[in-house]
Write a protein that binds this DNA or RNA. Structure first.
Lengths: 244, 244
DNA sequence: TCCCTTTTTTCGGCATACCTAAATTTACGA
DNA sequence: TCGTAAATTTAGGTATGCCGAAAAAAGGGA
């Protein structure tokens, strides 16, 4: 049974699975450039390693990925295009769910994950139009343009910055809905200002001063929160402050 | 691979196929009460007869349909509930596509057909809310309420009315997009007034006077158009005018 | 260098929904 | 009543994507 997308030049070669695999491969290189291994994909997609082997062979046959047996998996130009098309779909849908249907931050991911395979190109472009062609989604992830161009801002995970660094939050990973709810409750959002203070003794939580442009308050953040918040430099030349 | 609906009590038992079959069975009884046969289902769903036999067995196993071999297929109460839930989804989605995304009449059916299997109950209820809980879709089909109640208006196909009958159009079948475009071009829409004049000689087209409350103009309609337009009586007691 | 652990691939199987072709049952006219 | 044509079901087979188990390759420590 192939109920798949009609009307989708960029998405011509696909079952939902192909799309998911390509997107997962792309995701592991979007914010830091690490080629992905078979087992990492299996974890991310929640399937067995053997399933990944099988599907990766198919991706290679379709010309979407390159893969030497027993080594990392990478996308072809074609695969990269497909991944960006899917990411565009996903992020426009998330934006729609939040702006038009009143979804909360932490609710949109799963819904968009399903819808992105189903809607037509026409739907997506009309939606983009209605939303005014937004450039980032509710989590701060950049939305690729219809022509496949993306601008991924320079940013680092908060937890990887040294004390003294200042910046503002431009991305919040949506991997963990609980964390998103916590951040909501603490009124931490995109564009919040943040200053890194340092760790509490004995490897304790990271202390930051965080809030709106006017009101910064001190807050302790656990490792997961520190990893989920991505910060753009206020002082882009002081990269020396970045812990490597 | 079962990527199906989470979060859907009324829709718990389903692949997309089950939903489609149940909806198709329901559809054949919505406007006139005719139980559907195996081969009719096959035509409607675009599959082979043998596929219908197989899936109907499954529907029976799931408690969604009743079926004596070699006879007509009917829904159980449970199947009827599922069908109404799917119809609600479909019609709300069509309404959304037209009202919010600027789709034309004739474009919405296929898109809704895919989306209805994918969106969550949460999505549907928030959408209903945003749309103001509409009672009919862009084609005039009634939208079942969330609790499963529907009000299917009394109506007859225009082609089945005798000369002299007057009424207004409350439903336009969306089965043929070309026909919808024709009707659009002729500015025939929901709530248009119509008077049946009669057939041109030798079984020619049906002549009607049709238009808005003020301006009626004469128009010839072919059999397909006359079958697609459903008319509510202005004079509900004169059923004698209905050709049987 | 060798071995043992970890990673990855291969192999056989399951489930779904579809198809074609071959039975079977029904229904209607002679 | 019979017999054939039409409708329907069964039987056997395809494709997809998943799994677990077993085989194969890679990699690091002694």
């Amino acid at each position: 049974m192939p109920p798949m997308n009609r009307n989708s030049p960029a998405l011509s070669s696909d079952s939902a699975s192909v799309q998911d695999y390509v997107k997962a491969i792309y995701a592991s290189t979007e914010w830091r450039d690490q080629p992905v291994t078979s087992s990492q994909l299996a974890v991310r997609l929640g399937v067995a390693n053997s399933s990944v082997s099988g599907m990766v062979r198919k991706l290679v046959d379709l010309g979407l990925a390159v893969h030497e047996p027993y080594s990392a998996i990478e996308l072809t130009a074609e695969g990269h295009r497909l991944a960006l098309a899917m990411v565009r779909r996903h992020r426009l849908l998330e934006t729609f769910l939040v702006q038009e249907l009143g979804y909360a931050w932490d609710e949109v991911h799963d819904e968009a994950e399903l819808l992105e395979h189903t809607v037509s190109d026409t739907f997506i472009e009309r939606l983009a139009n209605k939303l005014g062609h937004p450039e980032r989604d509710p989590h701060g992830d950049p939305i690729p343009a219809a022509d496949g161009t993306v601008d991924v801002p320079e940013a680092n995970q908060l937890g990887r910055l040294d004390p003294g660094h200042t910046g503002h939050i431009i991305r919040i990973s949506d991997a963990n809905p609980d964390l998103l709810r916590f951040l909501s409750a603490e009124r931490i959002s995109l564009d919040s200002r943040v200053e890194v203070m340092g760790h509490r003794p004995f490897g304790g939580p990271l202390v930051v001063r965080i809030g709106s442009a006017e009101h910064l308050r001190e807050l302790d953040l656990g490792d997961e929160a520190a990893a989920a918040l991505w910060v753009a430099n206020d002082t882009p030349h002081e990269n020396c402050l970045l812990r490597t």
